[in-house]
Design a protein around this nucleic acid. Sequence first.
DNA 1: CGCGATTTGTGCACGCCTTCACAAGCGCCT
DNA 2: AGGCGCTTGTGAAGGCGTGCACAAATCGCG
Lengths: 253, 253
Amino acid sequence: MSDRQREPYPSDGLGASHPIPPTNAFPDLPEATIARLPEYLRALHNLADTGHDTVSSEGLASVAGVNSAKLRKDLSHLGSYGTRGVGYDVALLIEQIETVLGLNQGRAVALVGVGNLGHALANYGGFVSRGFRIAALFDADPARVGEPVNGLAVHHISELAEVVAAEHISIAVVATPVAAAQLVVDDLVACGVTSILNFAPCVLSVPDGVDVRKVDLAIELQILSFHEHRKASLTALPSLNATAVSDSEAVAT
Amino acid sequence: MSDRQREPYPSDGLGASHPIPPTNAFPDLPEATIARLPEYLRALHNLADTGHDTVSSEGLASVAGVNSAKLRKDLSHLGSYGTRGVGYDVALLIEQIETVLGLNQGRAVALVGVGNLGHALANYGGFVSRGFRIAALFDADPARVGEPVNGLAVHHISELAEVVAAEHISIAVVATPVAAAQLVVDDLVACGVTSILNFAPCVLSVPDGVDVRKVDLAIELQILSFHEHRKASLTALPSLNATAVSDSEAVAT
DNA sequence: CGCGATTTGTGCACGCCTTCACAAGCGCCT
DNA sequence: AGGCGCTTGTGAAGGCGTGCACAAATCGCG
């Protein structure tokens, strides 16, 4: 059960110095696990930068903010290369996770909508440092076309098809106003983009085979607001350092 | 079972013209439901703006992008004010959800870190239009202090305590670099902030009673990358409009 | 060379969430 | 006034995810 480890994979010559499994075909990874792998990866990079060669599930779990049992189960799903009694090889695990996530290919990402948020995203270094390359910027406003943002010139949205094809773009970030989002997404899908990260606060309809993830900042705040509201209605239990919390909004118990 | 509807609630005089239930104490709302309520709320506002007075669970569900059964169960958890054979009263449901989420209080939010992302967030209209008020901006860089952003002057982080107290701030958005995030959060917690929306790509440790939600843009992209990777390894099934998808990255089947 | 300390990998049980399917209730039309 | 069609609200079943607890495996040391 542990001998399918040494098998170099054929294509995608990225000069990997570690033995890597076939990698393709992870059809049945639990979605919850997938969502946590990036967090593990980030934690592992931190560990590697601070000179750690190996790490125990307990150690990695605490840095990643999860349960150690959950971590082990997650890693076991992708073949698990830990050593009992020792822990996990940090470098190997990094490469393993990056391979599973398909990050060692420097994926090209398009960003549509260069407004406030779009600007911030284009300048955000976190994308580049974590396996992505912002390959092109688009906007519908002719006044913005040509404007240089973080070293890239903004394309007009009408050039979408050719640029997407030329740059082999498969992932797009939508940071347009709500009114434009669905139109842009339709164009993106028509161009062959199959993964979309949507910042516009609306529901997008896409055909099967296209993945959409949504980030809605107001929704996050509203969820926090609920918990805040609920905490306020439980006014009674004296929290530890609640010296400054004595609001006047105490609801009648 | 439907007679606990007409009961005006005592405090919190916000001039509500609709009958609203006691509202406080929703201790056992499923977390999954809470996370969806904001989406329902947004969809309902859209419906109200387009002249709809009532909506069926089917209709609202499709606009909100969920299953109609799920929607009904979610709404049933908060007392459910639908009319069989008709549907839900849009305006009433809006008020109901806003009350549950605690949005009709115009919650004050602090934003810490006025860099690229912080600027974008400060200028983002979506917060204000959905029940929040950005009450104060903070940064550790003395060069930024005093700079006006969207009509607000940036405070130095050292003024956190007094401003938080003066403005009754209970929610904070952290948009600082990773290195500063934990320090800022410790300060926030010490000032009595009990809900934090974290944009820094790191795990924050907070005491019990403090809620943290995290938004990591790179993680979202990495999750998409995995699905992209998986789709690429399943090269075989001919998708519908895949004319432009004929990449050269076809992995060996 | 063997033993103990340590850590991984996993079977199992529990709880949450989703989904189906249908009874109960409401309004409208005749 | 009565019946019919439509929609809500909910019981029950199934699936997914989590966490416990322990067997299996590996290393280091005497």
